[in-house]
């Protein structure tokens, strides 16, 4: 147990963070190089003003037409992402671990707040899953990889929740939690989860194209 814990909470954390940052950087650079080779005009069309305008509207709930069309999905997607990003950063247990290893610390949620936000993330994952199974138009577009990605994102939250409540087997789920978190981090650059890094560019490009080139409004 001690050897396993020391390994997954030591070297493996390094590995996953290096893959995460290195991989994201690599994907960004290779996207930029590819765009330059294939389509130089991307750079000419890219406009800070319209790009930012588009990102800004889109990042606000109900700020764009697509968000307004499906209000429930919009609400779920926004709550999901907000909790998903805030919980691991401001979770007391995580902050304590940063403090122990690096002597750095920041504000954190109370355990109860974090627990509720975690429950919300899990509920949103269940919602996405049901949506994929039930709605025919979504099911049609769904492949196995979508389920795998959803499971990969849900896993750290479910195991973390289980461990926090100290339900049976919580020592094992604690280890599984750490591994699941590391897998998720390391997977971000190489799966569809890269959308986190790409979104400013895809949306920004769309906005520039519509605003600066076509002189139209974007939706």
């Amino acid at each position: 147990m001690h050897d396993v814990y020391n390994f997954v909470s030591g070297p493996l954390v390094w590995v996953s963070f290096i893959i995460f940052f290195g991989g994201c950087l690599y994907r960004l650079i290779s996207m930029a190089v590819l765009a330059k080779k294939k389509d130089v005009f991307v750079y000419e069309y890219m406009s800070f003003k319209y790009g930012l305008r588009s990102i800004f509207h889109w990042i606000i709930p109900f700020g764009t037409v697509k968000w307004r069309k499906n209000p429930i999905l919009t609400i779920v997607t926004f709550t999901f992402h907000i909790c998903l990003i805030l919980v691991p950063i401001f979770l007391c247990a995580h902050v304590i671990l940063w403090k122990e290893s690096w002597d750095i610390g920041w504000w954190y949620f109370s355990d109860t707040t974090a627990d509720i936000l975690t429950g919300i993330v899990i509920a949103c994952c269940v919602f996405f899953l049901i949506r994929r199974i039930v709605l025919p138009e979504v099911k049609y577009l769904t492949s196995v990889s979508d389920y795998v990605i959803l499971a990969m994102v849900a896993a750290p939250f479910i195991t973390g929740f289980w461990t926090y409540h100290q339900w049976p087997g919580c020592k094992i789920t604690g280890i599984v939690h750490i591994i699941a978190g590391e897998i998720m981090l390391a997977a971000i650059p190489f799966t569809r989860l890269i959308h986190m890094v790409y979104f400013p560019f895809t949306r920004g490009y769309m906005g520039s194209e519509f605003g600066a080139v076509r002189n139209a409004k974007d939706w």
């Binding site: 147990m1 001690h2 050897d3 122990e100 461990t163 919580c170 604690g174």
Partner: peptide, 24 residues
């Protein structure tokens, strides 16, 4: 908290004996 954890958990990790997870 750090000081307590480093002393207690730190020794358990080094000695490979004694509790190391929050729940323990």
């Amino acid at each position: 908290v750090k000081v307590y954890h480093l002393q207690c958990k730190g020794c358990h990790q080094k000695e490979k004996a004694g509790p190391i997870m929050c729940s323990e």
